[in-house]
Amino acid sequence: MLTVHHLRISQSERIVWLCEELGIEYDLKLYNRREDNRLAPDEYKALHPMGIAPVITDGDLVLGESGAICEYIDRKYGGCRLSPGVDDPDFADHLFWFHFSNATFMTNGMMGLVAQSLGAAETPPFVADRVAKAWAMTNARLGEAEFFGGRNLTLADIMMGFNLTTSRAFGGASLDPYPNIAAYLQRIGQRPAYQRAMAKAEPGMPPMLT
């Protein structure tokens, strides 16, 4: 049985949303962050050698990494419904935003958080520039397409969604300068699968859609 191990207020919420969008059966196990340092509890860290979210188990399989998990679930359980084929006109855009999510967008934000944790008075200029470009590109994309992958919701949206919503609980950007992102999040927030996912993954916490 597929089990999604969700660390509260983390990127593993993506996997809950994915399962709800695909309408597949899965078990969900919630883990609360530690009170002293807000990191994952030892129980969660023991699931995978990296000790970070997300993690799924499927029989004897233990799998980490958001992108790998998304592809695994979509291919094994979803019939690749959220992955455009090579002949689809949206194929390349889907691939770009699917990989851009963690390889660039989230990495930029993490560099800023690390700088702050080391006592930097402000984000280093080269990091701030990369962050600004990433948000500007994201806003521009959502002004030209309804979804990151193009015409339809794809795994690219599953990956990017967390960056634009719950991750802002760690000090992310205001949406005021990004009207296309704000409009996109309102569309996402109306999806029944997203509503179900957030109610299960973050009970009592309103989704960060504004």
Score class of each variant (00 low, 15 high):
167 S>W: 15
10 S>C: 09
203 P>D: 03
192 P>W: 06
151 R>C: 00
42 D>M: 13
69 I>V: 06
56 I>C: 06
32 N>Q: 14
1 M>R: 13
124 P>R: 10
4 V>R: 03
79 G>K: 12
121 A>G: 05
59 G>F: 10
32 N>L: 10
144 E>I: 00
197 A>E: 01
114 V>P: 02
187 R>I: 09
53 A>Q: 06
15 I>G: 05
16 V>W: 04
176 D>Q: 13
18 L>G: 10
181 I>P: 10
193 A>Q: 04
90 D>K: 11
98 F>W: 11
147 F>W: 15
14 R>A: 08
46 A>V: 03
50 M>D: 10
60 D>T: 14
84 P>W: 08
36 D>R: 07
42 D>H: 03
106 M>Q: 15
164 L>S: 08
49 P>C: 12
61 L>K: 13
74 D>F: 10
162 F>S: 01
147 F>T: 01
27 D>F: 00
200 K>Y: 01
202 E>A: 11
164 L>P: 07
91 F>Q: 08
189 G>A: 11
78 G>S: 09
136 A>N: 07
155 L>T: 03
126 F>Y: 07
170 F>Y: 14
35 E>C: 01
27 D>S: 12
46 A>Q: 11
4 V>D: 03
93 D>Q: 14
9 I>Y: 12
2 L>Q: 04
117 S>W: 04
111 M>E: 14
9 I>K: 09
131 V>H: 00
15 I>D: 01
136 A>T: 14
111 M>Y: 04
71 E>A: 02
83 S>K: 02
